[in-house]
Every structure is written in structure tokens, then in C-alpha cells.
């Protein structure tokens, strides 16, 4: 694999809990191609699931989940020794300042455990969102030294 140009894998999935295991299985296979250790991959698996949980529970209203076709888009950038992940939705979005303020407390609240775990289990994390404009959570996991 070239270390300059990452392999890009895209998954466009229905916003449904039953596909979480599919995402984890695909991620497991893809991340092993980047040379991550089993422990790195397990950390990344939790991070990706938590980002998907964020879409499942916070991106769309009940009506859209019941009658529409809301999607979660997962993009993996696989390089030597590194996996970069983006989890996106076209939901109602939120003001990241509110979430980040809660997320940076020393002990997470029940609601913020998901973002807290993404931050703890990855090397970099970024949230891009605005009310009405969907959300993109990006993070990177590098191979442990």
C-alpha cells in the first residue's frame, strides 16, 4: 500500500442500529490493512460505533427515522500505520460548542460518554456541525508505537 495516497472506503448505510455490527466487521478488516494492532483496532471500533450512535440518537427526529430514509455515511482513509474516519449525516445538526463544553469536563455525563470515548480512544477528533446542516465527526487512529 502506498503511504502517500490512502485507500478510501465509503459506506452508505440506513440509519438503523442493526447495521452497527456490519460497520464494525468492515472496519476490523480494513483497519488491519493499515497495520494497526488488535488493541488499536478495538479502540477504533468503539470510536466508530460511538460516532454512529451519535447519528442514530441525535441526528434525526422520530418522524424522519420512521418514515424517511435517513443515512449514515462512513468514510475510511486507510494508510500505512493510520486510519482516518469520517462519520457524516444530513440530520438537523447542533452547535458543537455546547457538546464540546460538556465533553471537556473531567467526568462525562451519561449523555456525553459517546463523544468522550471517541476522544479517549483516538489520536485526533473534530466535530463539524451547525443547526440544520448535518454533522461530520472525524478522527484518526495511528498505530501504537
Amino acid at each position: 500500500m502506498s503511504s502517500l495516497k490512502p485507500d478510501v472506503l465509503r459506506f452508505d448505510l440506513p440509519c438503523q442500529e442493526k447495521y452497527l455490527q456490519v460497520v464494525r466487521l468492515a472496519l476490523h478488516g480494513a483497519a488491519s490493512r493499515a497495520g494497526l494492532t488488535i488493541e488499536d483496532i478495538e479502540d477504533l471500533t468503539v470510536a466508530v460505533s460511538e460516532a454512529c450512535n451519535n447519528v442514530l440518537y441525535h441526528a434525526f427526529d422520530e418522524e424522519t427515522l420512521r418514515t424517511g430514509d435517513p443515512r449514515m455515511l462512513i468514510t475510511l482513509h486507510i494508510s500505512d500505520g493510520e486510519v482516518r474516519v469520517e462519520v457524516e449525516d444530513q440530520g438537523h445538526g447542533f452547535d458543537p460548542k455546547h457538546v464540546l463544553a460538556a465533553d471537556q469536563s473531567e467526568l462525562p455525563t451519561t449523555q456525553s460518554y459517546g463523544l468522550y470515548l471517541i476522544r479517549a480512544f483516538t489520536d485526533e477528533m473534530k466535530i463539524e456541525s451547525a443547526p440544520g446542516s448535518g454533522t461530520r465527526i472525524s478522527f484518526v487512529k495511528r498505530v501504537s508505537k
Binding site: 464494525r24 460505533s49 450512535n53 451519561t110 460518554y113 459517546g114
Partner: peptide
């Protein structure tokens, strides 16, 4: 084999 924040939330509750 796998636990995330949703399972964690149930146990905390």
C-alpha cells in the same frame, strides 16, 4: 465481546 456507551448507560441507570 463488545461494549459501548449504550450498554454502559443501561448499567449506570
Amino acid at each position: 465481546e463488545y461494549l459501548d456507551s449504550v450498554g454502559l448507560g443501561i448499567m449506570i441507570g
